[in-house]
Nucleic acid binder design. Sequence first.
DNA 1: AGAGTTACGAAAAGAGGTCTCGTAAGTGAC
DNA 2: GTCACTTACGAGACCTCTTTTCGTAACTCT
Lengths: 365, 365
Amino acid sequence: MTDFRPGDASLVRKVNTQVTLRALRREGVATLTRLGRITGLSRQTVEAVLDELKERGWIREAPPDEGAMGRPARRFGFRADAGYVVGLEVGGDRIVVSLADLSGAVIAWERSAVESDAPAAERLEAARRTALACVDGAGVARTRVWTLAAGTSGIVDRSGRVSLSITLPGWTGLDLAGVAARWFGCTALAANDANLGALAEHWRGSAQHASDVVYILVGHRPGAGILIGGRLHLGRSGAAGEIGTLRQVGWENAATELVEEGSAAEVFAAAGAGDEAALRRVDHYAENLAIGASALVLAVDPDLLVIGGGYALAGDVLLDPLRRHLADLCLSAPQVVTSTFGDESVSLGAVRLALDHVERDVLGL
Amino acid sequence: MTDFRPGDASLVRKVNTQVTLRALRREGVATLTRLGRITGLSRQTVEAVLDELKERGWIREAPPDEGAMGRPARRFGFRADAGYVVGLEVGGDRIVVSLADLSGAVIAWERSAVESDAPAAERLEAARRTALACVDGAGVARTRVWTLAAGTSGIVDRSGRVSLSITLPGWTGLDLAGVAARWFGCTALAANDANLGALAEHWRGSAQHASDVVYILVGHRPGAGILIGGRLHLGRSGAAGEIGTLRQVGWENAATELVEEGSAAEVFAAAGAGDEAALRRVDHYAENLAIGASALVLAVDPDLLVIGGGYALAGDVLLDPLRRHLADLCLSAPQVVTSTFGDESVSLGAVRLALDHVERDVLGL
DNA sequence: AGAGTTACGAAAAGAGGTCTCGTAAGTGAC
DNA sequence: GTCACTTACGAGACCTCTTTTCGTAACTCT
């Protein structure tokens, strides 16, 4: 439950360091006095904390603000460029990479296509190349990447190994985190793509103010990620949210039925234009989706249901029937919204995961 | 995420008070030196903390141990009898009450029967009488009850109001916590029965070492409770785990099919003796159960699945087919065990909930 | 009664944090 | 350019909480 270890004075310093650093990261650049006011600490304490942080290289002193009244205050800024993290999506037909600094600002994107039946080695090599290209292209030395996180479809266990992948050839059993760790010689993490999507939405998307979130990545084969109390819930084997496994749910073939004629985008467009047959197809797909979604919703009773992934671009054409079926299946369905991100959501979630790791393990606490 | 407030020296004292109190509750009675050793604090600090706690009435000084070597040490004990909590199950056909002291030791049980079609007022009155009888019978003054928690079937929202009950007449809309608060003039909490069962198992039952737990209360109408990270997960409206709502799951009528001929106990007994027809019935019931259970398991991916409630007494007669169907439906089914409690599990969980409240709100932190 | 054992209690020291106050370093008005 | 005003810095006193040390007290055992 709570903490078990007793505390001494250094605990207080630890807490206050955290609080100060958190405030500084929000502020960007701030004076001692201002930091004192927003943290509730005395200026003296803030000063001591910042001295320590400067020593450790986390922050830097910025030039004083000119033109202000009174004696110029010393200003400090979080050294967002002290290190970088890479967020990576290794998808069925594409690789998406984002490079972010420690403040979470994404400073470079890179993407490339990959054949959906490419063997594992080829897919990995494409991912590696794209990631390196992204970092090199941004002019960031490879050694300055502190952590990499990768999202991929399939079940990824807590150690970052793909324990089961249905869609990607040769993917099952792959130690994705282990392999990716060698690319930059840094710690690497791996997780399921839907989980990372959920994380991204909670970080900067439509789920920012929700605590418990179910995120469904709709596309060829829907997947789901769950946030409990704002934190990723992975489960014992990392398989939390894998409701699609249940035959009763019918997620396996939901998409193939949808795209029997034409691409998904075409079907959605036709449905949006009022085409009866397309509407029926979409409705049927939404119903299938709703069955799985309702199982997750009933299990978790989330504050919010977020729909992400390629098909989410269809917007209300898909969401309206989904909401209808969901209301039918659940006692009280939560609010349903679409992702605010396009296809960056997984790599953005990966960035967040990497940053979480940095903040926890490198920054301490 | 983590704490937002900065800390000063008093934070350290708070932490150490918690640690000490926790240790003392585990030990029962302990000397200063011993407490120092197990908490990792100096004897002086422990002494200061204990002085404060004695002042506040949480602990008492016990007579020194005789016959030991050296100067007799002062001994302190947690005042488990400083207050009491009442755990209550308001079931379909019975009321179960347990009275526990602050150490969690149950010092009195009381139960009574109630008609399954009794109107709400009658059921409530029976619950009140039984609770009062339990406390009075134990010789505990009613004013010494600090918190009461009640478990009942149906969906109970976070404020302790029954937002939906299918089985109990007149129960929907009842402010159970509000009503029960008047019985002893203390804070009262209310929750779903399966949630409390889960809590009980994690506290003292088969789920003690599990972090994420799905608990299914099997009986007339199965219900489920979920523990995430050892804590109750209620969800937005308190409906987390209500997978039985989903028609595809078939929990609604699972039991009625089981008991078409004879009582449930008879069917289980016959199945245990090898009766083909009974085996088929049980297998069918187990299959229905497994569908809902697998939805929960896939959603949450728990460390452990615990089966409690009346039918759990059947043991492996029910569990074996359940495990089989579960293995069939889930990628990797978790361990499945039965509850270690009989029909005390809900009231025991209620005790735990009440104690949690006391520890958080009364003891501080 | 003396030796051995164990715990108590006061005193000193150190780490952190807050408050106060005199001083430094700017801007703006005259 | 000087003076008043504003704002921030820095040193010192003081408080809280913890730990360490050491002399003393209160037992048991021989």
